[in-house]
């Protein structure tokens, strides 16, 4: 049984999807906004941040990994679901050290953008202030794990698009962290400024050196409205 179109609803609006598309892809195509964070087009959906969670036929699931199914009833922009999303984004803020005023990604940071979008002014959970590592050894790229949200975009981009596997996760649970070759500094890896991985980071963990303030604060992606389009990343 192969149909060339799938029809379902998101918050009562009828949406069509191609077979094989996820709820998020169909929503994007229909210009229906689903808040999202770890998702990056071109990569296998990771489904780890959980921010794009929706209720499909009464069951919560992440829209980035959920295939669209004929007749499916999806709830997206509801108070219940947005409350979950705020909680998740809050958790990410307090889990790391996100000091926006001193971060050069501020204004272009997708974590910040999704927080604006959800109306978060201050996290409701206590800051954890973890001790995290930084690595400034590379001539062109700066790595600051204080801001890492473990979204795996860099892990996947480096492995699947750059073919280098510069990054992987080590440890588990609250000790899980982003890592590079054991015993090495970033400068010792194959990472190059032209690699796609450099533009994959949603936050200020992987930064290009010397261009941090090329666009002044106040004129950046999220400075005027929460989610203009997709953020600008070269």
């Amino acid at each position: 049984m192969s149909k060339d179109k799938i029809t379902f609803t998101i918050d009562g609006c009828e949406v069509t999807a191609q077979p094989g598309q996820t709820v998020m892809q169909a929503a994007d195509a229909a210009n229906i906004r689903i808040p999202q964070l770890c998702y990056l087009e071109g990569l296998t959906p990771h489904g780890s941040c959980r921010v794009c969670i929706v209720k499909a036929n009464g069951r919560l699931d992440t829209s980035c990994t959920l295939p669209a199914v004929e007749g499916m009833v999806v709830e997206n922009n509801t108070e219940e679901i947005n409350e979950y999303r705020r909680d998740l984004v809050d958790m990410l803020f307090v889990e790391g050290n996100h000091i926006c005023p001193s971060c050069e990604k501020s204004g272009d940071c997708e974590l910040q953008g999704v927080a604006y979008e959800l109306g978060i002014t201050a996290p409701k959970y206590p800051y954890q202030f973890p001790r995290r590592e930084t690595d400034a050894s590379h001539p062109d790229i700066f790595l600051d794990l204080n801001r890492c949200i473990l979204c795996a975009r860099c892990v996947q981009t480096s492995r699947d698009l750059d073919g280098k596997t510069v990054f992987e996760f080590v440890g588990r649970g609250p000790d899980k962290k982003l890592a590079i070759r054991p015993g090495a500094r970033l400068a010792d890896t194959e990472l190059d400024i032209t690699d796609q991985v450099v533009g994959s980071c949603p936050v200020g963990t992987i930064l290009k050196k010397r261009v941090g303030f090329a666009v002044p604060v106040g004129e950046r992606t999220y400075d005027k409205e929460p989610h203009p389009e997709q953020p600008v990343s070269e």
Binding site: S48, M91, F169, R172
Partner: peptide
Amino acid sequence: ESCGYCTPCRA
């Protein structure tokens, strides 16, 4: 014992 993959279970 959390694997640390998703936000709610890890943080």
